[in-house]
């Protein structure tokens, strides 16, 4: 407490000195002719504006790619494959997003300056879904990871989540491109991407009917998907929705990398 008292005294001293200085400064300013003063101020303002607007121009092109999808789809494995080229000793269910700004592992051998990617792996656990919304405003692209191995039992859950993503206000308004990534395809029992695409389109078609009448008050499904009267296909979406395959475990991730580099130019 004593230390604090001393601090207080010292700070008071400083403020007194500051006041004096200010007073001197004002006096000097009064002596300068006004025209010069205005010019000086104009120059100052101009530099400040220019300095401030540089990062604005830079930020215009976002470099954020967001990984999302149900829990257990393999997002975290993918994240580390993209970053380190390895999934290390394995993963467990994520409780928080993984974030990083880096040059993709496969590009580290390339020469020249490469623009780093800001990659975010958002946990898939349904309790943590609200987190996704935090990252959407800055997203240049969205990778929706689907477990191709365990697809059928989860088909409805996956489709519902994708529906929520595709009708999200940011995704629609900013036309964020979405890559549906069928993961774990190194296994022979994994479903093909065409099968998965068709099943999900079918499922979303049904959801369209039930959701158009009742929209969850919290998820702002302000937007309806597809063309009324026609069966839903991903090609009807305003934003670009593509399908690709990958295997996070074996490191076969070239199609994700392509997607990333298509939307975050190197």
């Amino acid at each position: 407490m004593e230390g604090m008292e001393q601090w207080k005294v010292q700070v008071e001293n400083w403020t007194n000195q500051l006041n004096q200085l200010l007073g001197q400064l004002l006096e000097q300013v009064h002596q300068v002719p006004p025209a010069q003063l205005y010019v000086a101020i104009a120059v100052l303002v101009f530099t400040v504006v220019v300095l401030l607007s540089i990062p604005l121009f830079k930020r215009k092109k976002s470099n954020t790619i967001v990984l999302t999808g149900l829990s257990g789809g393999g997002k975290t494995v993918l994240f580390y494959q993209l970053r380190d080229g390895s999934y290390h000793q394995g993963t467990v269910t994520s409780m928080e997003p993984n974030e990083g700004t880096f040059i993709l592992r496969s590009e580290t051998t390339k020469k020249g300056k490469i623009k780093p990617v800001h990659l975010v792996d958002v946990p898939g656990h349904s309790r943590l879904r609200p987190k996704l919304e935090e990252f959407l405003p800055q997203a240049a692209g969205l990778v929706f990871v689907v477990d191709a191995l365990d697809f059928l039992p989860n088909c409805r859950a996956v489709s519902e989540y994708l529906y929520d993503v595709l009708t999200n206000a940011y995704v629609v308004k900013k036309k964020i491109p979405v890559l549906i990534l069928c993961n774990k395809t190194e296994k022979v029992t994994a479903h093909t991407k065409d099968f998965i695409r068709k099943q999900m389109e079918k499922e979303i078609d049904k959801l369209r009917q039930s959701r158009s009448v009742v929209s969850a008050a919290d998820i702002t499904n302000d937007f309806t998907l597809g063309v009324p009267g026609a069966a839903f296909t991903f090609s009807q979406c305003q934003n670009r929705v593509t399908v690709a395959e990958a295997s996070g475990l074996t490191g076969d991730i070239s199609q994700v990398e392509e997607f990333i580099r298509e939307h975050v130019k190197p």
């Binding site: 257990g72 290390h88 993963t91 467990v92 269910t93 997003p97 656990h125």
Partner: peptide, 27 residues
């Protein structure tokens, strides 16, 4: 890590766990 990356496990103990206790614990 809270992000879900395993940093270290005891290799000495080695025996594989049955089921998935860790994921269940987290979820």
């Amino acid at each position: 890590t809270r992000g879900g990356l395993i940093l270290w496990t005891c290799k000495e103990l080695g025996s594989a766990l049955r089921g998935s206790p860790i994921d269940t614990l987290i979820r």
